[in-house]
Nucleic acid binder design. Structure first.
Lengths: 226, 226
DNA sequence: CGACTGCTTGATGTTGCTCAACGTGCGTGG
DNA sequence: CCACGCACGTTGAGCAACATCAAGCAGTCG
């Protein structure tokens, strides 16, 4: 396992910041850093999960191969832990994770991680906070996807990228149309159609993957109305 | 706050079983038991959440009033903690909980609960396990609901009640058709239609809310095929 | 240059929602 | 006690939203 210098890492998670000097030292000895290019496969569904994964920088999609078709559960931006649930809930990964841009992750030994939870209450509580917030977000995702029609979901997704990921009204979409469809649970064709509709109605400016929001109020309205 | 006798409670959660004698004593002094009839409102969306809730016995539905219509997130069977995420992730309840049958719950003071997490690693780890498993289940719910068509979702729901809740091929549906629709994300009319279809095709025997599964293989097949 | 991938667009069929009507059981108030 | 409103359940008809199928286009790579 590659030796890293967690102690001086300035991209520590909220939880890791609660570790004391000795624990950080243990972490350093049980942690390996890896770099992925866009499209790189970080974890694979149905493989054994033996490590906790911490996304230090970059952008990752979490996706599941369902019985019918691929589904993107969510887009995760650094910093964040991946597959905590998978590791603790089950020994097998229930989903895949793929880098959408240049991404750096740390693989952390699960027994070490467990020991931190047992020994360091602050650390444990941060992890619980993290899981809790994640679950609340999942709830709302489910709600949105379940009740909105296609146009609202696409509007949602665009707003998500603009507000949560890039904090800008202009950005390069980090995913293909197919991915956008898998993320919103619609077909590639529908996604494409809705984007050109938005373009025609002067809500978006679209140049292949470059997107500029022209009418954010209307977009928000579409997202909310469903 | 009503004085209860947690020490001799034989319905303790996996986490609570990790508490030592002294902690149990603290728990007793910061915990109130309440009984709800079917239809009783345990927690209400948008109210302040000041307590952890532990479902000791009974059956509960977790539901959200969405922008468009009501949605049932999940059905929870005792024993289980409710709204851990709500309490830690935010101070306001993001959902309501309603009893579906006679249900007993314990309201536990959140600061006491937090203290257990800080002081008792075993306890914290059990809670993390719980949250993790919950999140995995949510993922699969999302998947199922997103990709299946109505008939598959209803089949799913029936199998869920038969396998997870009642462990029997014959049971009394604890929810109305409207609830069944809200649970699967379809309309009341569609739910009703599909049930009568199942009845006509001799997959189910239906007497108002009493359901008997006649052809479980076919039902499973419908559920899987979507 | 051909094969391939990602994207777009149009035509067609299906699913499931909406609306509307009607039956039933239950509780409330006159 | 009956009349009434109200929630729940069932059924049918029409329509809108989407998926599917099919074809074509641009860019890329071997």
């Amino acid at each position: 396992m590659e030796r890293t210098i967690c102690k001086f890492c300035n991209l520590k998670s909220a939880a890791a910041q609660k570790l004391n000097e000795e624990e950080i030292c243990v972490l350093e000895n049980n942690c390996a850093e890896a770099r992925f290019n866009a499209g790189g496969n970080i974890i694979k569904q149905d493989a054994l999960s033996t490590n906790i994964i911490y996304v230090k920088s970059g952008l990752v999609k979490i996706h599941i191969k369902g019985p019918i078709k691929e589904r993107i559960i969510k887009i995760v931006k650094a910093p964040a832990y991946l597959c905590l649930p998978s590791t603790f809930g089950d020994k097998i990964n229930h989903f895949s994770a793929t880098a959408l841009e240049e991404t750096i992750v740390c693989f952390i030994d699960v027994t070490v991680f467990k020991k931190f939870i047992y020994d360091n209450g602050d650390f444990a509580f941060q992890i619980i906070l993290d899981l809790s917030k994640g679950e609340l977000q999942n709830f709302h995702n489910c709600l949105n996807n379940a009740q909105k029609q296609n146009i609202g979901r696409i509007a949602d997704a665009i707003l998500f990228f603009a507000n949560e990921i890039y904090s800008s009204n202009t950005f390069i979409l980090p995913v293909s149309r197919q991915d956008l469809a898998d993320l919103t649970g619609i077909t590639r064709e529908s996604a494409s159609r809705i984007l050109t509709d938005f373009h025609n109605e002067k809500i978006l400016e679209i140049n292949s993957r470059k997107i500029t929001i022209l009418n954010d109020k209307l977009l928000l309205q579409i997202s909310e109305k469903g």
